[in-house]
């Protein structure tokens, strides 16, 4: 779920904008210069995968995959997410322009944390990879939901109802994302383990 324009108080919108700019600058610095074009191309695939809908009971949910982005890109994940969100906002109006910073924080911070978590804990076996991958995938979404709640709550107590609903709506997504991420990591482990071993763009 992306926050649209006008929801956040102006101070929060501006503040999160500045914060995400700072993190993005750090992310660019962490990425090897010649890898930036590669990160851009991969961002396009994350963009496309976030348009994929997974059926869930009578409706369907589309994937957010902050966890997976973090797993695959490491520190460059924040940059990729910021770019992806910008393009989603420009092309589809998913998430407002003035709320871009907030949205980037909401998705990017979980991505960075999950990337770190995965890198630390992934171990050597497929089982462990899948477990940690699922944890990162699900955890990323959970964290994103928590941040969304926090951002919404910044609007004051009137927004608590919306916040609760948003949290509730993310619960099933959290399960789906965790499972899909686990399966994706399992697939990658068997097919192209080097994608999991070295995070693209991580300055080597």
């Amino acid at each position: 779920m992306h926050i649209s324009d006008g929801v956040l108080p102006i101070s929060v919108a501006l503040g999160s904008g500045v914060a995400s700019l700072a993190i993005a600058a750090w992310s660019v610095k962490q990425t090897a210069n010649e890898d930036l074009p590669k990160v851009a191309v991969v961002t396009a695939s994350f963009f496309v995968s976030s348009l994929i809908h997974v059926p869930l009971g009578p409706t369907s949910v589309h994937l957010l995959i902050p966890g997976l982005v973090g797993v695959l890109l490491g520190p460059a994940a924040f940059l990729a997410i910021l770019l992806g969100l910008l393009l989603q906002s420009l092309l589809f109006q998913f998430g407002g322009l003035t709320a871009l910073g907030a949205n980037a924080l909401m998705m990017g911070i979980p991505a960075l944390l999950c990337g770190l978590l995965f890198k630390r804990l992934r171990g050597d076996t497929q089982k462990q990879h899948v477990l940690v991958g699922g944890l990162a995938g699900g955890g990323g979404t959970l964290l994103a939901a928590a941040l969304l709640a926090l951002l919404l709550a910044s609007g004051g107590e009137d927004f608590f109802g919306v916040m609760k609903l948003a949290l509730l709506a993310h619960l099933p997504v959290f399960v789906v994302e965790g499972l899909v991420s686990a399966f994706t990591v399992s697939f990658l482990f068997r097919v192209k383990p080097e994608l999991l071993a070295q995070q693209l763009g991580a300055a080597s």
């Binding site: 010649e34 991969v42 994929i52 399966f183 697939f187």
Partner: peptide, 24 residues
């Protein structure tokens, strides 16, 4: 379905990562 979606995403990523190198 979720398993297949996982494979599908994985395949999409593999193809895109391979493409990044070719583009570069």
């Amino acid at each position: 379905t979720l398993r297949v979606m996982g494979n599908y995403l994985g395949m999409l990523f593999v193809r895109s990562f391979e493409r990044t190198h070719r583009v570069y």
